[in-house]
Nucleic acid binder design. Sequence first.
DNA 1: TTTTGAGTTGTTCGA
DNA 2: GTCGAACAACTCAAA
Length: 476
Amino acid sequence: MRPSIVWFRRDLRLSDHPALDAAVRRGGAVIPVFVWAPDEESPWPPGAASRWWLHHSLAALDADLRARGARLVLRAGPSGRALAALARETGANAVFWTSLVEPAAVARDAAVRESLEAIGLETHAAPPDLLFDPQAARSGAGRAYQVFTPWYAACLRLPPPEKPFPAPRHIPAPARWPASLNLASLGLLPRTDWAGGLRETWTPGEAGARERLGRMLRKGLRDYSASRDMPARAGTSRLSPHLHWGEMGPRQIFHAVRESSGARPGTGAREFVRQLGWRDFAHYLLVHFPRTTDAPLRLAYRRFPWRHDADGLQAWQRGRTGYPIVDAGMRELWHTGWMHNRVRMIVASFLVKDLLLSWREGARWFWDTLVDADLANNTLGWQWAGGCGADAAPYFRIFNPVSQGERFDAGGAYVRRWVPELARLPADWIHRPWEAAPQVLRAAGVELGRTYPLPIVDHGAARRRALQALASLRRT
DNA sequence: TTTTGAGTTGTTCGA
DNA sequence: GTCGAACAACTCAAA
């Protein structure tokens, strides 16, 4: 049997990997390859934080492959040409991969498939890493769902996701390994090293993913409902970047939760699996509404009067809005490449409703700074916040950054961690320093406008302005 | 076929 | 201090 190529993209793992498994079962040597071709994902090539993650995930995948007698070959795009060259060099006559759902990747993969088959290669595309086939659930008229709950209910009536299977014990190697680029030469790491906070926070790779999942199953599920909304607590799984890069597939998580929670899963386990459902739903929507990465799903929002305000945008990005919970979130993002889900909603509402800046500005910033940046999830999240997407937040749902802070970060521990210049303020004022008495501020070493900004907008006025802008959509 | 009720994550106002 | 109503328009399924 001639060798097979396994084209790794965002399935950077060895266990529960149908494409790899099929290639190994075929019998010949297996040549794993990653092709760096960011242009092919335009207009959403991986951002800076994603590239950092990718660098380390590729290193981990290579190490895992070497432990099984193989290695990871690195090449540069265009993908079709790189794969054809690799097949020529190695005598391979089949290419295996896992499908993606992003519009650019779908188009690229179709073109690659055509070009490979034209030169006589077999191609095998495994289904995307999702719990449910995006074509399976259809609403009444055979149309695609736009609301989560009925979609999820329909999915729960489908056969459950397949059970995961282990990594191949041995991966047959070719007689001679083809040339590989050096990982460093892909230029994925930042030129000036700003990634210290990322290194402290994350362990990219399959082993890191397994560690996070294990921790969640051991002590996270029981408390999940209560603590998942508290940004100061480690109440969420933090599996999102591992999921994005496919270091762990959703089926593995789904079944691991099932097994650990037994026949009668508690509410924590059910809620946690439901979050996996949201990831699936985001991908489902991207399959059925591919234009929503760049345009609102609700067409009325095309004429929404978004403001342009470079200073406001920059204050938001840098965590200098004067609203402590917003600034804490934006600084957590900048430092760690990740932000707690509750805080993502708060900062998104602030950008879109308080500053009236387009959800697309927010999506772009998150895309560049998040280690878990995922086009489907990012699109769903920002269109939800913008009020223009599927199952969107109603127009009148405008988060109050003070009451959100007081509700979900009552003692201010989260703010103190990420906005150290406010750390000595008493809890009563930590979310509204501008209302504190001068002597309270002085005692805490806070001088508003100097050590910490005054609010860049008045929330009450901003809220009324947003409601007016939304009303302007309805007249006509 | 038509109607009805509910829909991840909220806030404010007035009784 | 607490509580219910109001704040659109649309999707979806059950009645």
